[in-house]
């Protein structure tokens, strides 16, 4: 029980580009515990996305190690990593990444296919998550018939449908207007209150301020790792939490 949810040790990712070796992530060691709400910040090219892709088991480190929920991932096969992502990690993307011409329910149900759930169970679980996201009346809409905010909520429902331990969100508000962004961050805060670890990659301070902890990257290294002092709350909760 005492192990952290995410632990990286000397994490390095290098690319060869035009004969030069680029250290996208350059020796990062840090831990993230259960129940944290972390914002990973940095300018573009700082290595924040690469770092997140590695702790999300989407990308393989050049050296160093990642442990998820106490499990070392270095020696895992592609299929084992797929299984780990399926069960423990929910992804939310900037561009939503919903399947076109596919209903909201079917989009949310996709991870359950790979979890080996049957058709009826998939539909039931997906429907529950969509209702929880306030999209009970949009179950059969395809992405083209949903607003950006609604699409991102479908994507969050999809990320949550396998009951993962953590949500990894890469610029989740990057394609949304300010008000909708606030709505999405409110959802993240509620989910975090309910116990899910949330890790958000962003370059916007206003978004990062919704988190409890801020990790700032520059040139592949962590230059700052501190609690958020003036935590920002989405409107609905502001009074209650203050």
């Amino acid at each position: 029980m005492s192990h952290p949810l995410v632990a990286t040790t000397n994490l390095v990712k290098t690319y060869e580009l035009g004969g030069e070796t680029i250290h996208a992530v350059d020796g990062v060691s840090l831990t993230i515990d259960n129940g944290e709400f972390v914002a990973i910040m940095g300018a573009s090219g700082s290595g924040k996305s690469t770092f997140m892709n590695m702790i999300g088991c989407l990308d393989v480190p050049s050296s160093g190690s990642v442990e998820i929920d106490g499990i070392p991932t270095s020696d895992m096969s592609g299929d084992d990593l797929a299984d780990l992502r399926n069960r423990k990690i929910g992804f939310v993307f900037q561009q939503f990444n919903l399947l076109a011409r596919t209903t909201a329910v079917d989009n949310v149900a996709v991870p359950l296919i790979y979890a080996g759930k049957g058709g009826e169970e998939r539909r039931n679980l997906a429907t529950q998550k969509l209702i929880a996201m306030g999209l009970g009346d949009r179950l059969l809409n395809s992405p083209a018939k949903l607003s950006g905010g609604q699409q991102q909520r479908v994507a969050i429902a999809r990320a949550l449908v396998t009951e993962p331990l953590m949500l990894l969100a890469d610029e989740p508000t990057g394609a949304l207007d300010t008000r909708t962004s606030e709505d999405i961050m409110e959802i993240f805060q509620q989910l975090n209150d309910d116990g899910i670890t949330v890790i958000v990659v962003t370059h916007e301070d206003e978004i990062a301020d919704h988190a409890k902890r801020k990790i700032i990257f520059r040139d592949g290294k962590v230059i700052e790792d501190a609690p958020v002092t003036n935590r920002r709350f989405a409107k609905a909760q502001q009074g209650a939490e203050a």
Binding site: D79, A82, R85, N86, V110, Y114
Partner: peptide
Amino acid sequence: LRMALGAKK
């Protein structure tokens, strides 16, 4: 996307 969501090879 499908791989991220857990699809195996």
